[in-house]
Each structure stands twice: as C-alpha cells, then as structure tokens.
C-alpha cells in the first residue's frame, strides 16, 4: 500500500513533469532538471540534483535567512552593507561582516558540499561588493508560477491556432500555476518586512489567476469553479468576484438554494468588514436568480 508521503511525492513529480511539457517552448524556462529546485510557496524547500537539502545542511539560521533573502531579491545584486542592514540591523558593521561571511560560506557548503577548495561557487555570485544568486541553474517556483500565467495570458491574447485550443492550453497553464501556489510566499518569514512586498504581489497574482480560471471553467466544470472560488475566499473573504462566480456555478449545477446562500454570505461579510452593500452587479445577479425559479 502507498503511504501518504509517497503519494505526495508522486503528485509533485507529476506536477513538475506537466510544467516541463507546458513550458517546453519557453527559452527562459530552466526545466525540472535544473541543478537546484527551490520551493517558496507554502513553505521553504530546496532540492539539489533531485535530493532535498536538509534543514541541518544549512548549518545555521543566518545562512538560511541570507539564502531566502537572495531568492527574494531575485536578479538584483545588493551591497554587503545593504544586506546586513536589511537582515540583521541589530549587528554592528564588524560583527555583521563576520556573520555575513560565515552565512555565505554555509550556503555554499549546503548547495555544493563537494566543491573543491579555491573553486568559484556555482550558485552564489559576487560583483565587487555586491552579492546575489545565479539563477541560470535554478528552478524557482515563483518564477515558474509567473511563467505559466504569462503563457496562459499570451495564448488567450494571441489565440494562435483555433480558439478552443488556446483556451484549453490557457486552462492547463492556469490550473498548473494554481496547483503550484501551495500557500503564501515564505510563510516562515511572515513577520519580516523584506519579504512582505513579494508575498503580497504573489498572493494577488494567485487570487486573480484563481478567479480567472474559475470563470473559464464555469461551462466545463462548475464544481471546480466552486472549489476555486472557495479557495479565493479562504484567502480573502471580501473578494466579491469570487462570490459571483460561486453563485453562477451553483446556478449551473441547478442548486439555487446554495446560490442564494452564497449571496447572503457575501452581503453579511461585506457589511461586517466594510459596512457596504454588495456591488450592483452582484445584486443584479441575485435578483436574476430569484426571478428564474
């Protein structure tokens, strides 16, 4: 019998294989065989050549901290002083400098345990006093998440081939992107300001993608639209578009009572949180549902 961990691993593998297929024509996509795979959405994990880098391999918390900061800064290279000031403002320059060097060394050891002495590190880069990561060999979930969404948007805009084909491809890309969004960006760093902007940006992107996908699936799979709308509302309970999609999906399933109950919930939440009425569009939909008994 399969255990839960094996099933989860298999699902993850299937997800990555389907991403490889969907983004096969994208030159900037590094491919699942990239030397380093990094997951930041819903929890932090790193795999080196397919094997997960254990928490203990980082040696110290500051190394993990610095690596996650590099990931967040993405292709931006920052001066050592700026990095120390953002990450460890309580340290004076001398101690900050020492801790930075130790942390950088620990990152290099964790990512390249067999690197020969005096060989240049493969993943961490230095330009003068500026530091960052070389993303050429890194499969980063946030980057792939965005690439999938861009590919879907592009397909819908250009409609290369026939419309149905473009729609099917877009739905596949959006679905995979949504599956990749396991939760907030680096939840371990929720209370640190350097990660907040990226977390907010990605959450909004995920909410918009889930809403778009739920709408696209209304005809084909209203049940999936309901599930996606519920996922949106679990993240942001005042996302009014999601209530409307859920109402329409229930109507498509001929479940009028649940459509009405969804409207009532929307009304209650908006009243409690903002003291406002639902939008005229939502009210009109509700009245339409009431009329079509």
């Amino acid at each position: 019998m399969l255990d839960v961990e094996t099933v989860a691993r298999q699902l993850k593998q299937d997800l990555i294989s389907s991403i490889d297929q969907l983004l096969v024509d994208l030159p900037t996509y590094p491919g699942a065989k990239a030397a380093l795979r990094v997951q930041t959405l819903g929890g932090f994990h790193v795999w080196r050549d397919g094997l997960e880098v254990s928490q203990t391999a980082w040696g110290r918390e500051k190394a993990l901290h610095l690596f996650q900061f590099f990931i967040t800064m993405h292709h931006q290279y920052l001066h050592k002083e700026q990095i120390i000031d953002r990450l460890w403002p309580e340290l004076d320059m001398e101690k900050g400098d020492r801790d930075f060097k130790v942390a950088l060394n620990s990152i290099n050891k964790a990512l390249e345990p067999t690197r020969e002495p005096r060989h240049e590190p493969r993943f961490t880069l230095r330009y003068g006093l500026a530091y960052g990561l070389d993303f050429a060999h890194v499969w980063l979930d946030t980057e792939v998440f965005e690439q999938l969404i861009t590919a879907a948007n592009q397909a819908l805009l250009e409609r290369a081939g026939n419309l149905d084909q473009a729609r099917t491809y877009a739905i596949a890309c959006y679905t995979t992107a949504v599956n990749l969004y396991n939760g907030d960006y680096l939840p371990e760093r929720r209370y640190e300001d350097w990660s907040s902007a990226e977390r907010e940006r990605l959450q909004l992107l995920a909410l918009n993608t889930m809403t778009t996908l739920a709408e696209l699936l209304l005809d084909r799979s209203p049940l999936e639209s309901v599930r996606l709308a519920q996922r949106v509302l679990a993240i942001d309970p005042v996302w009014e578009d999601a209530y409307r999609i859920q109402m329409r999906a229930y109507v498509a399933q001929r479940n009028r009572p649940l459509a009405i109950r969804t409207y009532e919930k929307c009304r209650k939440v908006l009243e409690e949180e903002f003291g406002v009425e639902p939008l005229p569009e939502t009210i009109a939909l509700y009245q339409q549902i009431l009329k079509n008994k």
Binding site: P89, E90, E192, A197, R199, L279, E281
Partner: peptide, 23 residues
C-alpha cells in the same frame, strides 16, 4: 540606542477599486 528588528513597523496596504455606473 542600537536599531533592532522590533523597532521597525512595516505595513502592507491593499486597495481594491470597485467602479460601476449608477442608474
């Protein structure tokens, strides 16, 4: 006094615009 993490207050502000036409 040394600056520490707890001396920092950051805020994430989100505005959602709702635009519609009245009757």
């Amino acid at each position: 006094m040394m600056k520490t993490q707890r001396d920092i207050a950051s805020f994430v502000l989100r505005f959602t615009q709702e635009l519609w036409q009245d009757p």
